[in-house]
Design a protein around this nucleic acid. Structure first.
Lengths: 353, 353
DNA sequence: AACAACGATGATAGCGGTTACATTCGGTCG
DNA sequence: CGACCGAATGTAACCGCTATCATCGTTGTT
């Protein structure tokens, strides 16, 4: 069933409204109107306490009479600093990063910062390009996802004075500041949890196809721990594309068809786990009695499922808020040096395990 | 169960790596090394065909010897145009806008554009502030969500030469260019669909709390059409907060408790619908026989549900790609004028209706 | 051979602010 | 009462790059 006007119902008839086109006023205009020099206007705008109240009044009047807006680019160029923060994430669709992004924005927007956002598509080369072009804007700080970078990216990052924050991961050797949690330990925690819940044979539905090495770290933690606590190597199926529910369902079906003895499955994230949960119902595996399912992420619907989806809650929002806090401190001149901030994670048990 | 290092395991011991701090080379340095003037370097970088091959070679050598990166801010200031595109969305968490954002990025990143992203939190005043500060960067274009703006925002938008794109909605009177679909018609289409499927009494789970007037438009279309095709006014429950699955489940339960005769429910989006679907199962309403449920958005898991969730597929990605295309044309000088682009939507029937 | 046309390059004035330094001026102090 | 001081403001040199226009060989034309 089709709605709307169709694939592309351009309506050329609709004449766009008339645009004005008045030249934007410059600081010199404000200065002229207020009868002072541009230096004074500049001061009145950035350090009002240096300007006498009367003059400041005249300038303010001129500013809103002309509805003057400073050209941030000129200001940034002249002062060699801008109120821009570059953020590079591996995917804009992934709800995890979106939440972090929103938190960064919330924590910094009040201070007048703008976010310059780049999408690396999980590619290191792409990240390198983004880093280069973001640094070319001399941002107040640069936030990047992960602690693994290409050689060129490393060079650029070490060579700049811009504060760098690496997020969503930890390292002993941060470029500057790192805010995240241990991906590997998630796998460890889930393997142990399955043991506690009495599972006999573990399974894993992953998405190696992506260059998402963070997911690999989780998998590695899961496998190593499984072996070390007496399991045989978990049965495993990799998704053939992006981790969606539909593909998760399929991969899960495949896993169980090949290894019917599996009774506890870790899915690489909640979206995939949701697909598995539905598929389990469809195929008649009872959850959690015959089969336990665990996701990663604790997205909204995990709590609404029937049964509720056990999952690992990640500090998505906390990461963003922490970064904002650190950056505010940092830019204000306090806290000159970086560090590693482990925000932890939490395994949330619900009905599915 | 708690993992990771806890709430804030800062590890101050980890000494950040040594930063270099070499002053970034300027174009003048490149010129000196290559033995030419800055003008020639500038040309070699932006219009290589104007420079002789030998000189170009020397300049390229100098560029990567010094690993020179042009200062985009200076360039943008001098040329009065920047390779930046401002995008304002009402929420970063909402997967709909993220997909559009990613599509815009994909369509434009190749051409060297950066996205400056702002979050209006569904607030018109916030949008106005964002518009002002984005225009202060003289972006190559500004993309905003919706066609409704505050007076101040309107003034700013009409007063600038920056191309403006309004998205996710249509209007007869665009500021410049609009790319979207009719929100109202979605409500119309779903009401008709319920009629076709033989529903007797309609219901609606919405989220009026948000300043999301687009959702209101859908609701209005649904209610008006319901009445006009012979239904009584749909029973309705509003979510008490952000539209999540958990709240969707609760609101749905409330709706059915108050109006047990309802046999077809439109949920304001798929996340809410998913909650309703689970709750229906929990409460023992059989879907779709006794009760039909329809969402909006066609997010990934809608197809993976059991039964599959009927929903309205929105051109989330198409909007972004279309915008990128229009902007490329526009900036290249072709296509001087805007217009309204209706990308339509599609009602996808699955098992839940 | 003289001259026009052209391609390649250099000199330089901005772009719209910021900021170090100079200037002005009323008040304070020895 | 003159030197000195600090607050308030002006002057002007940038920030790093772009773009206009002038300059200077070369090649082509008649």
């Amino acid at each position: 069933m089709k709605g709307g006007k169709g694939a592309d119902g351009t309506k050329p008839a609709a004449a766009p409204r008339e645009r004005l086109g008045t030249a934007r006023p410059r600081m010199a205009d404000v200065a002229r109107v207020a009868g002072v020099s541009t230096a004074t206007v500049s001061r009145a705008l950035r350090q009002p306490e240096l300007v006498s109240p009367q003059v400041r009044g005249k300038i303010e009047a001129a500013v809103d009479h002309l509805s003057y807006r400073p050209n941030l680019m000129a200001g940034a160029l002249a002062s060699a600093r801008s109120k821009t923060i570059g953020v590079i994430i591996p995917s804009m669709i992934n709800a995890f990063f979106s939440v972090t992004l929103e938190a960064i924005e919330e924590g910094l927007a009040g201070a007048g910062y703008q976010l310059l956002i780049g999408n690396s598509h999980y590619e290191l080369e792409s990240e390198e390009r983004l880093i280069a072009s973001m640094l070319a804007w001399s941002p107040a700080a640069l936030v990047i996802t992960g602690c693994r970078h290409s050689r060129g990216a490393m060079r650029a990052l070490l060579d700049t004075d811009v504060p760098i924050v690496e997020m969503w991961e930890l390292t002993d050797n941060p470029i500057d500041t790192a805010v995240g949690f241990s991906q590997r330990d998630i796998g460890v925690a889930v393997a142990r949890h399955f043991k506690e819940r009495g599972a006999r044979r573990l399974g894993f539905v992953g998405a190696m196809h992506q260059r998402d090495y963070r997911a690999d770290a989780r998998r590695a933690g899961f496998f190593e721990t499984a072996l070390s606590i007496g399991y045989e190597a978990p049965a495993e199926v990799q998704l053939p594309g992006l981790p969606t529910s539909v593909r998760g369902a399929k991969a899960f079906a495949e896993l169980m068809a090949g290894h019917p003895d599996v009774d506890a499955v870790l899915c690489t994230n909640d979206v995939v786990a949701l697909g598995a949960l539905f598929e389990a119902r469809r195929l008649g595996w009872s959850v959690p009695d015959r089969l336990k399912i665990c996701g990663v992420g604790d997205v909204d619907f995990a709590a609404a499922c029937e049964p509720g989806l056990s999952t690992v809650s990640l500090p998505r929002r906390a990461i963003g808020l922490k970064i904002a806090e650190l950056l505010r401190e940092r830019i204000a001149g306090r806290l000159p040096t970086g560090g590693v901030h482990d925000l932890g994670f939490e395994l949330v048990r619900r009905g599915s395990t």
